[in-house]
Nucleic acid binder design. Structure first.
Lengths: 209, 209
DNA sequence: CCCGCCATCCGTGGTACTACGGAAAGTTGA
DNA sequence: TCAACTTTCCGTAGTACCACGGATGGCGGG
């Protein structure tokens, strides 16, 4: 028996995971939560063996949440759950105490394997991630199954990185400022960053500067 | 006779230049202006042989202004006038059509030489800049007479570049947010940039990331 | 000893950015 | 053809950042 907790702001993901586990009586789900606050509240009631934790949450970021949760409940094994397969993120999470790292596109067998592995106290990385890390180490090159940006997003990323303000970008591309803001919001979300600084760094990684 | 136009938002600089040229009847100053708009207006009245153009202006940046002016008045020879001796800026200006590049700390003979040279249609670069470019080409290393930052400024620059918010920086360094803002303001001023994006780029140049 | 620079703090008053959510039109692919 | 995605736009709010100016105490050089 390995008890579980699931944290994700998309209820779709939660129900997807719950469905995958529904025919597995050995993996009871103790609770689900959609944000960090709820998670902390739930943990007051019951501490599962393994926590599936989305690193993108509305009220906090999973990286810090990871640290915070482990501080309170050191016995917990955390599997980070995310769409972001860039090696940087993985390193951050692992450095912050996560035992495993799964992409949301994972399948059932992978999920169960991950749960079993971390419950045993070992580390589990998504296969895709493992390969990315290997490739990076061998070739010295960066990110892996990079987050794909749309044409527009790339364009705007480049301009932001070149010190254009939203207004200037709007003028240059004949868009409204709101549209530019929208795209930036998407970028921030996709890339799991929260300000211009992050965008510029990303632009460097992508060779846009 | 070489006619001149001067554009700088600091009247001090303008009068300084005017003074240097006051005993040179061969270099009449047709007009002076303190911003891009004024410049464009003046150029409707009279087009000088050489334009001394500060690249930092309140209403625009000299780099784009340079392009814009030359588009309208292709015969104009422009000498960029600035405190910033980083090679990047020089390259930008030259690529945008400037014929010469002078540091504001220049002396009279240097100024006259620059004017004569560009009026003849040749290119003139400040000696200091020339050497910086040579050094860069030879050593493969970047910027020249780098703007020096204080210890604190460097520290904060690094944190900004690593996606820390002002609040977080303040917490980390045990400062008030206002102090952090002050330092950022100094950084922006010293480095001639205006937002986080610029700071992050600078941090890259300085190897802080 | 005084001047200048550094580091610290604060005030005022913007402007820019960010987090969401919602909506509509166009594109693309299975 | 239908679903999924992209691009565009807007609203509401809040937070972060930026441009100044001004003030203080410390510290080093002349």
């Amino acid at each position: 028996m390995i008890t579980l907790g699931i944290v994700d702001d998309h209820s779709l993901i939660i129900s997807g995971l719950a469905h995958m586990l529904s025919d597995q009586p050995a993996y009871p789900i103790l609770f689900t939560a959609t944000d960090g606050k709820q998670l902390m509240a739930e943990l007051e009631q019951a501490v599962p063996d393994v926590l599936l934790l989305d690193i993108e949450l509305p009220d906090t970021n999973g990286i810090e949440l990871c640290t915070a949760v482990l501080k309170k409940h050191p016995t917990l094994h955390i599997i980070a759950l995310t769409n972001h397969d860039e090696v940087v993120y993985v390193r951050k999470m692992i450095r912050n105490g996560a035992s495993g790292y799964l992409l949301k596109g994972t399948d059932k067998s992978n999920l169960l394997a991950a749960i079993d592995t971390v419950a045993r106290g070992q580390q589990f990385l998504d296969r895709q991630i493992e390969q990315a890390i290997l490739r990076q180490t061998l070739t010295g090159k960066r990110t892996s199954v990079e987050v794909k940006l749309t044409k527009r997003e790339n364009e705007i990323l480049a301009l932001v990185a070149n010190e254009y303000s939203n207004q200037e970008i709007a003028d240059k591309l004949f868009l409204s400022v709101r549209t530019v803001e929208s795209h930036r919001h998407s970028l921030n979300h996709k890339l799991n960053i929260r300000n211009s600084a992050g965008l510029v760094k990303e632009a460097y990684l992508r060779g846009l500067i």
